[in-house]
Computed example of a mutant assay.
Amino acid sequence: MTFIAIIVCEVAFWIAILGGLTARYVLRLPRAGACLLAAAPLVDLVLLALVAVDLLGGGTASWHHGLAAIYIGVSVTYGHRMIAWADVRFTHRFAGGAAPERLSGRRYTARCWGDVARTGLAVLIAGGILGALIALVADPERTAELQGTFALLGLVFAIEVLWAISYTLWPRKPAPPRAGPAEPAARP
């Protein structure tokens, strides 16, 4: 049940985001768009409640419960950025906004280190949720599966740090300029 809830919540999250952006830019309904975008964080609360009810109701923790904690941590820390990413693309496509910028060099490296901080926060949130669930259930046999999720969180954070280090040592190069429309060959 938890795995299905995660999938449903992920779909609901993107429906809220894409629906909000569509309402804002395509249908020209900014208030409706704002309401739909505001619904995205509520999806996390619903998932957290479902996981807690499942475990407090006698369920045994599985990797799905750990995945739910990770999903919530990532959604809380990266959700705003995902919405901003989609917003720039919708603005460009439907409202005449500027094309999305591809960062390179020091700016991209700084963003990578910002992601280290964001991922660290996501790890802390997910770890806090896991710790709270383990404490609430208070049955080590039923929550034993969640212990492995802590190691996974450490691995994810370590990969994020290595990613940032790699772009510190070897900065991302600027994208080659885009070719404009082909000009007709000059006639002699």
Results as ranks from 00 to 15, higher is better:
residue 1 M to T: 08
residue 2 T to H: 13
residue 3 F to V: 10
residue 4 I to K: 15
residue 7 I to Y: 01
residue 8 V to K: 02
residue 9 C to M: 14
residue 9 C to E: 10
residue 10 E to G: 14
residue 13 F to D: 03
residue 16 A to Y: 03
residue 16 A to N: 11
residue 17 I to W: 10
residue 17 I to L: 10
residue 20 G to E: 06
residue 25 Y to S: 05
residue 26 V to M: 00
residue 27 L to Y: 06
residue 28 R to C: 05
residue 30 P to I: 07
residue 36 L to V: 07
residue 37 L to V: 01
residue 38 A to M: 07
residue 40 A to V: 03
residue 41 P to D: 04
residue 42 L to E: 12
residue 44 D to G: 07
residue 47 L to W: 13
residue 48 L to Q: 08
residue 48 L to Y: 06
residue 49 A to N: 07
residue 50 L to C: 00
residue 54 D to N: 05
residue 58 G to P: 06
residue 58 G to V: 04
residue 62 S to R: 03
residue 63 W to A: 12
residue 64 H to S: 14
residue 67 L to V: 02
residue 68 A to R: 06
residue 70 I to H: 04
residue 72 I to K: 03
residue 72 I to Y: 03
residue 73 G to S: 06
residue 74 V to W: 00
residue 75 S to E: 09
residue 76 V to R: 04
residue 79 G to N: 07
residue 80 H to T: 15
residue 86 A to F: 14
residue 86 A to C: 12
residue 90 F to R: 02
residue 92 H to Y: 13
residue 94 F to V: 01
residue 95 A to Y: 02
residue 96 G to D: 02
residue 96 G to K: 06
residue 98 A to G: 08
residue 99 A to L: 11
residue 104 S to C: 12
residue 107 R to K: 08
residue 110 A to K: 14
residue 114 G to S: 01
residue 114 G to F: 10
residue 115 D to F: 03
residue 115 D to T: 09
residue 115 D to R: 05
residue 116 V to W: 10
residue 118 R to M: 00
residue 123 V to K: 09
residue 123 V to N: 00
residue 124 L to G: 08
residue 124 L to C: 06
residue 125 I to W: 12
residue 127 G to I: 06
residue 133 L to G: 02
residue 135 A to K: 01
residue 135 A to W: 14
residue 135 A to N: 08
residue 136 L to E: 07
residue 137 V to W: 01
residue 138 A to K: 05
residue 140 P to F: 12
residue 143 T to C: 06
residue 149 T to A: 09
residue 149 T to I: 00
residue 150 F to E: 09
residue 151 A to G: 14
residue 157 F to W: 13
residue 160 E to M: 09
residue 162 L to T: 07
residue 165 I to D: 02
residue 165 I to C: 04
residue 168 T to S: 02
residue 170 W to F: 15
residue 171 P to I: 07
residue 171 P to W: 01
residue 176 P to I: 08
residue 176 P to L: 11
residue 184 P to C: 05
